[in-house]
Design a protein around this nucleic acid. Structure first.
Length: 280
DNA sequence: ATTAATGTTCAGAA
DNA sequence: TTTCTGAACATTAA
C-alpha cells in the first residue's frame, strides 16, 4: 500500500534513470488482466508524449508525477499495489504500462506494475493538473505540515482523529499504516474527535508525523507479508521491522509493557493502538 | 470450495 | 454541508 514514504522511495529510485530521458515509446505490456484506467487512451498519449523529454520526477501526496518538456504531466497513482520499476518485475503478468526512454545514447525502460490493477495513469495538461491535483482536491503534503497547520486542518472536522488523518483534503500522503504508527508515537488516541485536540497535542502530532515519515523514507518504506511493495529495483523496504503497532494486535506494547496492542475498526479500516499509552 | 480481509480513491447516498 | 457506504480488483488465509 504505497503511502507517502513508499511513493517517495519510488520517485528517488527512478529519478536518475528517468530525468533528461527522451520518450521514444509508450506501450501496454502483454497482460491478460483487466486493463487499468489510463486516460486519455494510448493513441492520444503516444501522439502527445513521444519525442518529449522528462524534465522532472516528483511526488504529489501518494502519486508519482513526471513533468514533460511539452508542459504535459504524467500522474501515476499506485493505489493499493502499484509499483514504478526500472527492472525485475515481481511477475510479468501484472505489468501495466511501459515508457521507453533514450538517455545518453542508452535505452531505458520504466514500468508500472500493479497486481490488483486499481492503479491509474493520467496524462494531464498543466491546466488540468492544477484543477485535478490543486489545493481544492488535495490538502498540504504531510511533510509540509506545521503544528499551526495541523491545528487549522483538524478544526475542520469532528471525525475521529485517525479517520481525519486519512482524509487527503485535510492532509495529503498519510495512509492507514502510517496513521497508526504516527498516533502511537504521539501518544494520541485514534478515537479522539479531531477538533478537540489541544495545542500541545497538535504539536506532538506534528513532530511525530515528520519523525515517522522521514524514518520510513530512510528505510525505503514498508514491505508487508504479501510482499507487494518493492522499491524501483524490486527490493524489499525495511521499515516493516520498525513497526510498533501496525498488525501487532495482541502483542505487548513495546513502550509500556503493560497493555496489549489493540485492533479496532474505524471507517471500515483497521486501527492499531495501545490503550494504555494512547488513552481517550 | 467459499468467504473475509487487505487499503486507496471516488461516486453517490444518507 | 458533512459523513458514510460500496465498488473498483487480485490475492491470500481461514
Amino acid at each position: 500500500m504505497p503511502e507517502l514514504p513508499e511513493v517517495e522511495t519510488m520517485v528517488r529510485g527512478i529519478r536518475d534513470c528517468v530525468v533528461g530521458g527522451k520518450i521514444t515509446a509508450v506501450t501496454l505490456p502483454k497482460c491478460s488482466r483487466k486493463p487499468i484506467s489510463i486516460i486519455p487512451d494510448l493513441k492520444n498519449i503516444q501522439k502527445r508524449v513521444i519525442g518529449t523529454t522528462i524534465d522532472s520526477v516528483d511526488r504529489r501526496a501518494k502519486r508519482v508525477k513526471l513533468t514533460l518538456s511539452s508542459g504535459d504531466l504524467f500522474v501515476i497513482e499506485p493505489r493499493m499495489t502499484g509499483l514504478m520499476l526500472l527492472a525485475d518485475a515481481p511477475t510479468q503478468d501484472h505489468l501495466r504500462f511501459q515508457w521507453t526512454l533514450a538517455l545518453k545514447n542508452e535505452s531505458h525502460d520504466l514500468w508500472f506494475w500493479d497486481r490488483r490493477g486499481l492503479g491509474t495513469i493520467r496524462l494531464y495538461s498543466a491546466k488540468e493538473y492544477a484543477e485535478q491535483l490543486g489545493p481544492k482536491r488535495l490538502g498540504p503534503d504531510a511533510l509540509e505540515m506545521t503544528s499551526k497547520l495541523w491545528i487549522t486542518q483538524l478544526q475542520k472536522t469532528s471525525r475521529p482523529l485517525k479517520v481525519a488523518m486519512l482524509d487527503q483534503k485535510l492532509v495529503a500522503g498519510i495512509g492507514n499504516l502510517y496513521a497508526s504508527e504516527i498516533l502511537y508515537r504521539a501518544k494520541l488516541s485514534p478515537q479522539k474527535p479531531a477538533n478537540q485536540l489541544s495545542t500541545a497535542e497538535c504539536i506532538r502530532l506534528s513532530k511525530s508525523t515528520l519523525f515517522i515519515l522521514k524514518k520510513a523514507i530512510q528505510y525505503e518504506g514498508s514491505t508487508l507479508s504479501d510482499g507487494t511493495y518493492r522499491n524501483a529495483l524490486n527490493r524489499d523496504g525495511s521499515y516493516q521491522n520498525e513497526h510498533r503497532v501496525y498488525m501487532k494486535q495482541e502483542t505487548l506494547c513495546s513502550r509500556c509493557r503493560s497493555s496489549e496492542i489493540q485492533r479496532i475498526v474505524q471507517a471500515q479500516r483497521s486501527t492499531f493502538f495501545c490503550p494504555n499509552c494512547q488513552p481517550e
